[in-house]
Amino acid sequence: MSQDASNAAGRGSRLARADGSLGARGLLSVMIERGIEFGLLLAALASVAVTLGIVFVLVRESAPFFAHVSLGEFLFGTEWTPLFSDPKYGIGPLLSGTFVTTTIALCVAMPAGTIVAIWLSEYAPHRIREMVKPVLELISAVPTVVFGYFALTVVTPMLQSVLARINVDLPTFNMLGPGIVMGIMIVPYVSSLSEDAMRAVPMLLREGSYALGAGRLTTALRVVFPAALSGIGAAYTLAMSRAVGETMIVAIAAGQKPTLTANPLESAATVTAYIVQVAGGDVPHGSIGYQSIFAAGLALFVVTLGFNLVGAALRRRFRQAY
């Protein structure tokens, strides 16, 4: 109904004459309306243009790279040294760095975020929840370069002194410290989206569970949690995408040397750290080094796109569920 009303209004019906034709003022009004609508449409299309721009630039600028390097070497090579005199173009070492830091971050963020979400949604008193949530969100407002500083100057030395007791040597640049800090940074993403999902679970389900004699914890873990699972899954995938794309923390604290390793105590560059390292140096436009960051960016974009699409699908499911 509102759509009809607004369509009529959109044509400037107020200024129409009794016979249905438009006067001069009516015509002007219609033109203004149309002009504004067109302007707003352009703004909305800008967001599509951004996506197209990203894909265009990444593909276009990395095309010469892939003309030079076979896709097989890029994906399955085990050495990444594009700037050396004997260049090797296997992205494996960068991916392993990203994979290790992301895994550490998720090992921190997923359990902690989920427990915080269950606690906030099912246990915490209303007033505490209202107080804690915005403060938690402040964590995601802290610039990542500050977190990088924190990882390098506080967390790594702390880990070094702990690990020294069991005679494990931790270098200044390592993946463990920044991974943990990244995990803490992501906790609010996980907790806030998971909490939304759990609070969207209807009271009736909880009451049904209580009526069957279940306790509070059983209800939270066996009824509310599974009912909110798609929302929580969305939170997890978005957290993954966030960790994969995180740049400054790892660029500052994880080191810059591409190393194919699964050992979090070693120093290794991630995909993002490599891009920052090369872009921050003096790489001439059009050189293979310049092209290689777009190839790395393309790999990054494809991986995060996958996570984002899965996350979006899961999120839509939990929105529709009840």
Partner: peptide, 22 residues
Amino acid sequence: IELNITNLAGVPSIVYGLMALG
């Protein structure tokens, strides 16, 4: 457009930088 915006919100910021560079 909705899906596009959701996805854009999750694109790593460094990728925006690469796009702007090119």
